[in-house]
Structure formats: structure tokens, C-alpha cells
Amino acid sequence: MRMPGNNPDLFALLLAFLMTLLGAMAGYAYRVINGARFSWVMLALQLIVSLFAGALMMLTAMHYLWPVEITGAICGMAGWSGSTLIKALEARFLNKAGGSNAGTQVDS
């Protein structure tokens, strides 16, 4: 079912996806340049985390009707920051939810 006013075009989705991938690969390359050991497994895991962060930012961009250029830039930064962005969004969400355990980690 289509939601009125929330239909991103294919170009915006592709740009967000590509910028997220570029950001993720650039972030991983930066860590390797600074001395981290290269690993295909770690690169794949970084891509998964960064794609999730980029998808969250794409959904945010769709909600706030950001221009395509801003969406691409934000998704690229989300790809670069990966889990750092997700942790920051989680902390903000938990603080807004008013949980007394906001910002604490729960082990399962």
C-alpha cells in the first residue's frame, strides 16, 4: 500500500544506498590506513551495520522530506559512522521514551 506524500523516487533510493556503501567502505579504509588489519569478514560486517544506519537515515529523510542531495550526504555519513550513529540514536530514543535505564546496556 502506498502512503500519500511518502514515495521516494528510485534515484533518491539509489543515491542513498550508494552513498551509504561509499561511506562504509571509506570508514573501513580509514581504519586500515591507521593500522587496523584488513579482513573481508570485518568489511562485510561493517557494510551490514552501515546499511542499517543508512536505511534509518533514509527513513528519516523520507519523513522530513529532505532534498536528495541532503539525503545522500546524510546516508554517506551514516555509512561512515555505522554503529556509532546507531548507538547515538538508541540513546536519544531511550531518553525520549523516559526509561530509567536509558543509556545502559542490557545483556540477554
Rank of each mutant, 00 (worst) to 15 (best):
R2T: 06
M3L: 07
P4C: 04
G5D: 05
G5H: 09
N6T: 09
P8L: 05
D9Y: 13
F11M: 10
L13D: 14
L14H: 13
L15F: 12
A16D: 14
F17P: 11
M19S: 03
T20R: 04
L21M: 14
L22M: 12
G23F: 07
A24P: 11
M25E: 05
A26K: 05
G27L: 03
R31Y: 13
V32G: 02
I33V: 15
N34M: 07
N34L: 10
G35M: 03
A36G: 04
R37S: 09
F38N: 00
F38R: 02
F38M: 00
W40K: 02
V41D: 03
M42K: 10
L43G: 02
A44N: 05
I48G: 01
I48M: 08
S50D: 01
L51A: 14
L51K: 03
F52C: 04
A55T: 13
L56A: 15
L59C: 14
T60C: 07
A61T: 15
M62S: 13
M62V: 15
H63N: 13
L65P: 12
W66Q: 06
P67A: 15
P67G: 15
P67E: 15
P67F: 15
V68Q: 15
E69C: 15
I70M: 12
T71D: 01
G72V: 03
G76C: 12
G76T: 06
G76H: 07
A78L: 14
A78S: 12
G79R: 11
W80I: 10
G82C: 00
S83I: 07
S83Q: 06
T84E: 02
T84G: 11
T84Y: 14
L85D: 10
I86E: 06
K87I: 12
K87C: 07
K87Q: 12
L89A: 08
L89T: 15
A91I: 08
A91G: 13
F93T: 11
N95I: 06
N95M: 11
K96V: 12
A97Q: 11
G98T: 05
G99A: 04
G99R: 05
G99M: 05
N101T: 10
A102T: 01
T104Y: 00
Q105W: 04
D107A: 01
